[in-house]
Structure formats: structure tokens, C-alpha cells
């Protein structure tokens, strides 16, 4: 289950008392998220990224940078954040040609874009489909297979949850053995925000805390997939690879 308020406060207190978990190597060593500023909604889920990254830091070994860096496509720092989140709450204006070109370069060079539909209707969805078609015209958004690495990069996930249940799967654009654009319509980041007292900012519908926990797990898997790529898929074959060579300790 996700960390509840009492757990959260206790853990935060323990974290403050404990010795620093690591000596940071600098800003580039921390795994942070870029928040794409485009259209309405990028700031509609305050504290959500911070909460997700906090959960990541507590549940995994990843050294995180909690605060997202809000970036525009032409921001010089865009390429310091290989994971970019675009939250949309309404129809978004078309990206400029320069923005498309730069984001395409970003994706091709190793960046990953998660698009989160936080809108109440379908207007943002239409914008997303139009912009994805411009960003990656060769391949359309397609539903991810149930055995996609994203669904087992840390937690085993059967259904991608969010603040709402609008769609039972995620969509994505995969290129070169890597899903570089992911698109969810369940307002994933809407499930994460907390107020200063530790309460949830938004209710999760319909299953409440269990659904919120599942949303966190998806978020953690998302960060894990961004940093480990298909590592978990390797492990299916690892034993076979190890055994394939009949290496033995010399007698």
C-alpha cells in the first residue's frame, strides 16, 4: 500500500534523523524529471512529481531529484532530463516547428516523454494524437502489450491506474527497442499530490487508496523504465545466457 499520512510523517521524520543516504555526485547524478511547459495543465498537479520522486527514493535505490524542472522545448536544460512529463488539462496549441524539431531530437537522442491526460474531456487527447503524429510521424501511438517492460520494471502491474479509470492500458511509440513516448489517459499525476499536512490533494476514483497505490507503482515503474530501459526483460534470458557458455572453474 502507498505510504499513508501517519506512515508518511513518520518516515519523513526518520529520514530527517538518519544520516544522508548518499554523498551526491552533482546535479547530473540525480534522477530528475523535466516538466514540459506547453498548453494548460503543466502546473495543474502541484507537488505530484515531488511526491512521486519521494516515493521512488524511499522504495527504490534510485537517487532522485524531487523537484521537477519546468522546461520548454527550447530550454537549454531540456537535455539534462531524459524523462520529460507533459501534463495537459485542456486542448493544447500545436507545437511550433522548432519545438517539434527539438523534441524529436530529444527523443531520438535518448529522451523519453510521458504524456498525462489530466483533462476532463477529450480535447487534450486530440491534441496529443496530433502532436505525437508530428513528433514521430513514422509510427503511431499503439496500446502497450501486457508484457511491456514498463509493467514489470519494478512492480508487477496488471492494469495501469491513475486518479481516474478512463482507459485500461497505456499507449506508446516504440523505436529501436525503446518506448520513447508513453501516453496515459488516467490522470496519473493527479493521484500523487499531497497538501502540506500530508493529505491527498485529489480523490482517486473509484477505488480510493488501493488505486492510488497502484498509480504510485506505475509512476515508480515509469521512472525505473526510464533509467533501466529493458533491463527486466534481460533477466528472463539471463540464466540461459549464463548457462549457454559452459564455463567452469578450472580444476
Amino acid at each position: 500500500m502507498s505510504l499513508q499520512r501517519r506512515q508518511f510523517l513518520a518516515t519523513a521524520a526518520l529520514g530527517a534523523l538518519a544520516a544522508p543516504r548518499a554523498l551526491a555526485m552533482g546535479a547530473d547524478a540525480e534522477v530528475g524529471v523535466g516538466l514540459l511547459q506547453h498548453g494548460e495543465g503543466f502546473d495543474s498537479r502541484p507537488g505530484a512529481v515531488e511526491q512521486l520522486m519521494w516515493e521512488v527514493s524511499k522504495r527504490t535505490s534510485i537517487d532522485v531529484r524531487e523537484r521537477p524542472r519546468v522546461v520548454t522545448p527550447d530550454d537549454p536544460d531540456l537535455f539534462r532530463f531524459p524523462l520529460l512529463v507533459w501534463i495537459g488539462a485542456a486542448e493544447a496549441p500545436p507545437l511550433s516547428a522548432d519545438a517539434v524539431r527539438r523534441l524529436r531530437r530529444y527523443l531520438r537522442s535518448g529522451g523519453m516523454l510521458y504524456i498525462d491526460d489530466a483533462s476532463p474531456g477529450d480535447a487534450f487527447d486530440a491534441s496529443v494524437r496530433a502532436e505525437v503524429a508530428r513528433l514521430w510521424p513514422d509510427q503511431p501511438l499503439v496500446p502497450l502489450d501486457a508484457d511491456h517492460t514498463l509493467y514489470r520494471s519494478f512492480f508487477l502491474i496488471e492494469r495501469p491506474e491513475g486518479r481516474v479509470r478512463r482507459r485500461a492500458d497505456l499507449e506508446g511509440v516504440t523505436f529501436d527497442d525503446r518506448t520513447l513516448i508513453l501516453y496515459g489517459r488516467n490522470d496519473l499525476f493527479g493521484a500523487f499530490g499531497r497538501d502540506p499536512l500530508g493529505g491527498w490533494v485529489l480523490p482517486v476514483i473509484p477505488d480510493g487508496n488501493r488505486q492510488r497505490e497502484m498509480a504510485f507503482r506505475l509512476g515508480i515503474n515509469l521512472v525505473m523504465y526510464a533509467t533501466c530501459l529493458n533491463y527486466k526483460r534481460d533477466q528472463v534470458h539471463t540464466t540461459a545466457i549464463l548457462r549457454r557458455r559452459r564455463w567452469r572453474v578450472s580444476q
Binding site: M1, S2, L3, T11, R21, K58, R59, T60, S61, R152, S153, F154, F155, L156, E213, R217, M224, C228, Y231, K232, D234, T238, I241, L242
Partner: peptide, 23 residues
């Protein structure tokens, strides 16, 4: 021929999921 092993969770990580819910 790559064999990768990543430490995804340490002893300090908080465990809120059952083992069979983790990969």
C-alpha cells in the same frame, strides 16, 4: 553479450508491497 545486474532496492528501502507484487 551483456549481463546486467542492477540493485533496484536496498535494505533501507521501504517495503510496502508483497514480494510477489515485485519483479
Amino acid at each position: 553479450d551483456l549481463i546486467s545486474f542492477f540493485i533496484l532496492r536496498t535494505g533501507a528501502s521501504i517495503d510496502v508491497a508483497r514480494r510477489d507484487e515485485l519483479s
